[in-house]
Each structure stands twice: as structure tokens, then as C-alpha cells.
């Protein structure tokens, strides 16, 4: 089952085109890694899917609903949770209030329930529930940002560089949690990540973006197994 179907997506800022005619799919419950150098348009792609960027054209359907006409509030209602780069937390609110805001679209009993689920994945957030989000460490803020997205009970999460600025062991923990979330909550994921090898371990499919175009598409295993492909496109 295809969850997200993108055909001929182009997007940009003002007169500058950033993405050119992209085609790709995400299967229901699947994990897709979006790789490529800085400036390739990965963040722009996530923004144009979630509606943060409105200058876009082409077709993008989430379970048959047209995303191209939706603003962020609407894509959220349709089950898409975008966790933006640089940890989109509400820094002057407490951890718990951040999660409540994340659960805006859910009933209060669902909020209580999902909050427990988040605390199970990230117990440190339960210990810090009354602290101001801005006082958390970088890793904790990332966990909070992901949890904020989870509170929406999404079908699809868009994760923009979850490992940014985190120590290697913390990054591994975070990706382990993401894998668990994907399995247990049946949430599909589109992950933008600099750490290609980690992302390929989690993902089933990967796309490499360069200068706004998809230059390589394949299963994660194929790309991992092909040294020359890896060297040419991912630099390792």
C-alpha cells in the first residue's frame, strides 16, 4: 500500500527553484531515507510536503488526499508530523506543555495515553516533565521534538536531521528509538540525515538528492551493498 505518492514535485523560494520534478513513494509503515549533500533541497522537500513552503507544484497525495493545497494545520490533521531541523520545540514552555501542544488535535484521554507512550520511549522526558524545554540538552530537545510529533498520532513522520549536533552514542540511541516507534506505532517515516550509514540501517528505501533532483533511488540494502555507489553518492 502506498501512503505517500509524489509525482513531478517542484518547489522553491521566490524566483529560485530548488526542487525539480521529483517522483517518489513511501509505503504504508515504510521508512525512507533522504540523503544527499547540504543544499540539495532535502529540507525544502520536507517543508513543501508539510505545507510550510507554499511555492510548490506537482502532485503529492497522502492516502489519496492532495497535499499541495494544504497549509501546515491541514497536513497535521491528515496525519503528517513534521519535526523540523534544529529541534522544533517551544523553548519557553515546559516539556509537558510541549507535548500537550503536540496533541492539540487529539482528545484529552488520547493526550494522556500518548504522553505515556512518549515517556516509555524517552524516559528522561518524564523526569524533566516540568522543566522548560529550552533548558534541556540537545539530545533531550530532539527527543522532545520527536515526541511532540508523535503526540499527533501520525501516519507519516517527516524527520529533518534528527542527529544534528548529537554525540554518536546518543544518535544511535535515538535511531534505535525511531526504529521501535516505526514498528510499534506503525508510523511511516521520511528521514533526512547526514549520517547515511545509520539512516540506511533504519530505512528500507533510500533516495539521494543532488541539486534538487533525485540522482539515485533504490532499496537500502542495494545501496549499502554497492561500494561504488556509496563512494560516488554518499562519500563513504
Amino acid at each position: 500500500m502506498t501512503l505517500l505518492d509524489v509525482q513531478g514535485l517542484s518547489a522553491g523560494y521566490g524566483d529560485v527553484g530548488v526542487l525539480h520534478d521529483l517522483d517518489f513513494q513511501i509505503a504504508d509503515g515504510g521508512v525512507v531515507a533522504l540523503l544527499g549533500p547540504n543544499g540539495a533541497g532535502k529540507t525544502t522537500l520536507l517543508k513543501s510536503l508539510s505545507g510550510l513552503l507554499s511555492r510548490r507544484s506537482g502532485r503529492a497525495e497522502l492516502e489519496g488526499d492532495d497535499l499541495m493545497s494544504m497549509h501546515p494545520e491541514a497536513t497535521a490533521r491528515h496525519g503528517m508530523a513534521h519535526v523540523p531541523e534544529g529541534r522544533g520545540t517551544l523553548t519557553d514552555l515546559s516539556v509537558e506543555d510541549n507535548l500537550r501542544v503536540g496533541g492539540y488535535l487529539r482528545s484529552s484521554s488520547e493526550v494522556q495515553e500518548t504522553m505515556k507512550v512518549c515517556f516509555d520511549y524517552f524516559p528522561v522526558l518524564a523526569d524533566r516533565r516540568t522543566q522548560q524545554a529550552g533548558n534541556l540538552s540537545g539530545g533531550e530537545q530532539q527527543m522532545l521534538a520527536i515526541s511532540r510529533g508523535l503526540m499527533l498520532r501520525p501516519r507519516l513522520m517527516l524527520l529533518d536531521e534528527p542527529s544534528l549536533g548529537l554525540a554518536p552514542n546518543l544518535t544511535r540511541q535515538l535511531f534505535a528509538a525511531l526504529g521501535q516507534i516505526n514498528h510499534e506505532q506503525s508510523v511511516a517515516m521520511l528521514i533526512v540525515e547526514q549520517n547515511a550509514s545509520l539512516a540506511l540501517d533504519l530505512a528500507s528505501t533510500a533516495y539521494v538528492l543532488e541539486s534538487g533532483r533525485i540522482v539515485l533511488a533504490g532499496t537500502a540494502d542495494d545501496i549499502k551493498g554497492d561500494t561504488s555507489l556509496r563512494k560516488a553518492y554518499l562519500g563513504y
Binding site: 497549509h71 501546515p72 520545540t89 517551544l90 519557553d92 514552555l93 488535535l105
Partner: peptide, 24 residues
């Protein structure tokens, strides 16, 4: 109140609040 919290959220980070479905 919930409405008060959402207002604080909307002022604190409009983009993130919108991504959570809050009618900023």
C-alpha cells in the same frame, strides 16, 4: 486552560505550533 496554552505556543513558535495543527 487549553486555549491559553495554545496562545502561548502560537506566540512562542508559530511554525512548530502550526505543524501540530494549532490554528495560529
Amino acid at each position: 486552560t487549553r486555549l491559553g496554552l495554545m496562545m502561548k505556543a502560537a506566540a512562542s513558535n508559530p511554525a512548530t505550533s502550526r505543524l501540530a495543527g494549532v490554528p495560529v
